[in-house]
Design a protein around this nucleic acid. Sequence first.
DNA 1: AAAGCGGGGAC
DNA 2: GTCCCAGCTTT
Length: 357
Amino acid sequence: MEIGDNRLHDIQEMLLQWYLENQRDLPWRRHSNAYYTLVSEIMLQQTKVATVIPYFERFIKRFPTVYDLADASDDDVVKLWEGLGYYSRARNLHAAIKEVVATYDGVIPNEKEKISKLKGIGPYTTGAVLSIAYKQKVPAVDGNVMRVFSRLFDMEDDIAKPATRKKMEAIAEQIIPDRSPGDFNQALMELGATVCTPKSPECLFCPIRNFCKGYQAGREHILPIKTKAKAPKKASVIMFGVKWNNKLLVQKRPSSGLLANMWALPTENRMEEMPYISQIEEYCEMNQYSAKISEDVYRFEHIFSHRHWKIILISMELSENPVYLPKRSIWVDEQSVLEFAFPKVYQKALEQLGYRN
DNA sequence: AAAGCGGGGAC
DNA sequence: GTCCCAGCTTT
């Protein structure tokens, strides 16, 4: 990718000026604080600004400094992440900040080799923190930047391919200015989020449309090239609302895979070959439950990025103290259930069972 | 290089 | 319904 010196300088200046005048007022932009930058960047991974704002506000209010976060329990951290998704981000951020306190005297490192070794911090977040918080000339290539570049240079590379991100970083290296590299990176992302949008880009409001090869070719609508994601795989599950003595049985999910380590209702994969009633009876037998099973079941669906669950929720009231506790399970007082952090799919189920805020 | 990992909003 | 978002880790 060759960019003439004159055009390069103009693109830099136009973008920086546009960003100065048009940047959104966001909570993490109100102070220069590497901790705020890191928290916001982790939350913003695959997540829109509007969704993140209330989570960021609550998180910083509860954990104002790296020391507050390092001292917190994992349960408290995940509770503040409840509903935001990709929960390993919360656990990784917690681990990273603990490492910062333990190893770097509470200062988020400003060297690429060090910060990129922290849990959950990949190439994008490394570049974002180094450029925004520490004003270093390091690229930060996210989905927005790839879309902007794809159109600006009329590129045919598939942005879904890992190799394309490397190529985009090489381009960013050439474009990023010595002056205000952090603002420049944010300008590219802000442009992608507000003007150079995936659908119906508003090229007439774009500060660099005069340099845009895609726009000049009339190809802005079909760029960027991106292979489609596969449809989520379908699965059927049964969730069990098990009550006894005014307590509800909640279970920690397995430590890997979907919703790893999150609190949940006991969930079993549906045995398609038998009626679900039979599977429920078998489940009770296996756990030695003598239970009165509610007549009505609640059916609903939930779509994750790679899975599509059809869910049958059944409720049962045990008539005697169960002999043993299922693996990774605890009894929770009914009024305390919502103090635990549940992913959305289980929040829906719990709401149906009468647990709601 | 590809798969797995949440949830939401825009259309 | 489809697309995709201020991505990272594991396989």
